[in-house]
């Protein structure tokens, strides 16, 4: 399977600030890929480079097999984009904006457009200046989703939508992907959305990729929390590799353990005699919080 997007070692500076610092990203054709990171991590800059709006200082970016900077028009015929912060022309109605963007892209599916306007409960007759944030978002979503583009680039597409509309968005993306095998690059903060839509995710921080892979793999990489009551104090537990944050209170212990070390640790515990045992797999939240932590990348390692 080829990659719809492949980015290696991308670097981009704005004056003294380094927005991207060797970022890697690969999105397989036909998958929904989550693109995650705290505010200011460089998500929007990456998307703008992929759209040929900005030029990287160094590194490679390929999109649908082409160079996003030099083959802009050809590539843009095959993709649709929803910007992170949607603004509309104050004097144009939502319906006009949807039609205009669709036509500029080379046509859109009219039936699907009408269907999407209904499902998102959008009033297309209102002027751009009178829409709320959520409704502006809907205009951009309808314009992108009604196109026949093979790649959708969505920058926090559900910000400002109510939970009902978020659900509609998820349904539509799932349908589109099932039907046409479209590729979706979804930058998002909403974990439920990522969990329910994305097969693979890339997490970035301070312009660098800190984690990439399927959700299952990422969970596997994370730690399990263990609380146990033992027959006798477990000597040497703190010396085992992969054990973190150990707190011992006589025969009662609680600690976090890396997934590969779990087997050894359990053996050690049974040797001491287990009275009760609670173990909890990592939640997605913990996974993300670990990466969204604001301490510098170097300090984590």
């Amino acid at each position: 399977m080829t990659d719809a997007i492949s980015v290696t070692g991308l670097v981009k500076s704005f004056g003294p600030a380094r927005a991207l610092d060797g970022l890697n990203l690969s999105v397989r054709t036909g998958e929904v890929h989550g693109f995650l990171g705290p505010n200011g991590a460089g998500k929007s800059t990456t998307l703008r480079i992929l759209l040929g709006l900005m030029r990287a200082d160094s590194g490679q970016a390929r999109l649908l097999g082409g160079d996003p900077w030099t083959e802009t028009a050809e590539l843009h015929r095959r993709l649709a984009y929803v910007p992170g912060d949607v603004t509309l022309w104050p004097g144009l109605s939502g319906g006009e904006v949807i039609d205009l963007l669709g036509r500029l892209r080379g046509g859109m599916n009219q039936t699907r457009k009408k269907d999407l306007i209904d499902r998102f409960a959008l009033d297309p007759r209102k002027k751009g200046r009178t829409y709320s944030k959520g409704n502006r978002q809907k205009v951009a979503l309808v314009a992108a989703l009604a196109s026949d583009a093979e790649l959708l680039v969505l920058d926090e597409p559900t910000s400002g939508l109510d939970p009902l509309m978020e659900e509609v968005f998820r349904e539509v993306v799932r349908e589109e992907q099932r039907r046409d095998g479209r590729t979706v690059l979804l930058s998002s903060h909403i974990l439920g959305e990522v969990e329910s839509l994305c097969e693979r995710v890339t997490i970035i921080r301070e312009g660098r990729t800190v984690e990439a892979g399927s959700l299952a793999e990422l969970r596997h990489l994370s730690r399990t929390s263990v609380q146990a009551e033992l027959a006798s104090p477990a000597a040497g537990l703190e010396d085992l590799p992969g054990v973190h944050d150990l707190r011992a209170d006589g025969a009662r212990v609680s600690f976090d353990v890396d997934a590969p070390a779990l087997d050894d640790v359990l053996r050690h515990l049974t040797a001491a005699g287990v009275r009760s045992l609670v173990s909890r797999p990592p939640t997605l939240e913990e996974l993300f919080l670990r990466h969204y932590d604001t301490t510098p990348v170097g300090a984590l390692r």
């Binding site: 040929g52 802009t72 843009h76 993709l79 984009y81 912060d85 603004t87 963007l101 500029l104 080379g106």
Partner: peptide, 11 residues
Amino acid sequence: GLAEPMLATPV
């Protein structure tokens, strides 16, 4: 922010 959606089309 109005240039961005325009320039993400083949224009």
